[in-house]
């Protein structure tokens, strides 16, 4: 995806030079490197510990979970928690709902955000500043405070307990950040490339779609990851708006593992692991585009 000679290629090239230069000049091999590496591993270990705890708990049998002396490894090892979690009613329905909601939302969001990103990155127009301020400002409103108004809005539109309503809300919530990130990304691509194409006879629009659009690919990916995580993990709106179990999302399904006598830790951790998997998979597949993506957006503002 990163074509040499393009903005992305240049960027990646620079990145390599930076690291190599750093490696060449800064680091006398040996002790210093060892200290850096050890610190890095330490950071990873601290960050990962809660996740590790979640995963090993998912593999522990019930009685080994709440013990006064925690067990560091799942021995004995069991898949019962996963079986239990998957066997809960509506698991597959809720997986499907989450996928539909996030999938449709992302597809729409990418198109809409991309258009707005181009509009604000490539054109100066009256109201642009206001638009930019709006997309930052909109993020300041706490979603929890909007529960009742949003419910009323969707209720009057007959979209309570229906996926389209939730999709619309997620779209509006995720769009501002996506526009912002993509905008920086588009701005990063030299406008000269487009102008060259226009000299060769392309219209502005076709120049844009032939030259700029392909270069924004990694940016779209990075933005998509952010949107995916936000929507996939959202809870309160889905909980309030989707009341029938076959319409719910995975995060709401997860909440059903907490009963009035506390969470069922084993199945909950197994379910949480399952819920997290698609995000991690999506992320890992696309991670290589991240470095270019998120930041190019941010660097340009």
């Amino acid at each position: 995806m990163i074509a040499p000679g393009t903005a992305q290629g240049v960027q990646a090239g620079r990145a390599r030079t930076a690291t190599e230069a750093a490696a060449r000049v800064m680091v006398p091999r040996g002790l210093k490197q060892l200290v850096y590496d050890a610190t890095g591993i330490g950071v990873a270990a601290v960050m990962l510990f809660p996740i590790y705890w979640m995963i090993i708990t998912a593999f522990k049998p019930g009685r080994d979970i709440l013990t006064l002396q925690p067990k560091w490894f799942p021995a004995p090892f069991t898949l019962d928690n996963f079986k239990d979690a998957i066997a809960r009613p509506f698991f597959l329905d809720d997986v499907r709902n989450s996928l539909v909601i996030v999938g449709v939302m992302l597809a729409l969001a990418l198109v809409i955000a991309f258009l707005a990103a181009v509009g604000t990155a490539r054109f100066g127009f009256r109201g642009r500043t206001a638009f930019l301020v709006m997309i930052i400002g909109v993020q300041m409103v706490p979603l929890n405070a909007l529960i009742i108004p949003l419910y009323m809005l969707l209720d009057s539109a007959g979209q309570v307990d229906a996926l389209p309503g939730v999709i619309a809300i997620y779209l509006a919530v995720v769009l501002p950040f996506m526009i912002w990130t993509l905008r920086g990304f588009v701005a990063n691509i030299p406008v000269e490339l487009e102008e060259a194409a226009m000299i060769d006879g392309c219209t502005r629009t076709s120049a844009f779609f032939r030259i700029t659009f392909p270069l924004v690919g990694p940016g779209l990916v990075a933005t998509a990851i952010f949107g995916f995580i936000q929507a996939w993990n959202e809870y309160i709106i889905a909980y309030v708006l989707l009341s029938s179990p076959h319409n719910q999302t995975l995060t709401v399904w997860l909440a059903s593992f907490t009963t009035n006598h506390g969470p069922e830790w084993g199945p909950l951790m197994a379910a949480a692991t399952l819920t997290g998997l698609p995000v991690v998979a999506f992320f890992l597949i696309l991670q290589r585009y991240l470095a270019g993506g998120l930041t190019a957006g941010a660097v340009k503002g």
Binding site: V27, Q33, Y36, I51, T251, L254, A272, F283, L284
Partner: peptide
């Protein structure tokens, strides 16, 4: 991350990704 060897940076990055990807309610 700029200073560590590549394998370590992959490990740290993956750790960050896992943390980011896990739902907050979990």
């Amino acid at each position: 991350l700029l200073k560590v060897r590549r394998a370590v940076s992959v490990v740290v990055m993956s750790a960050l990704v896992f943390v980011w990807a896990t739902p907050v309610i979990v």
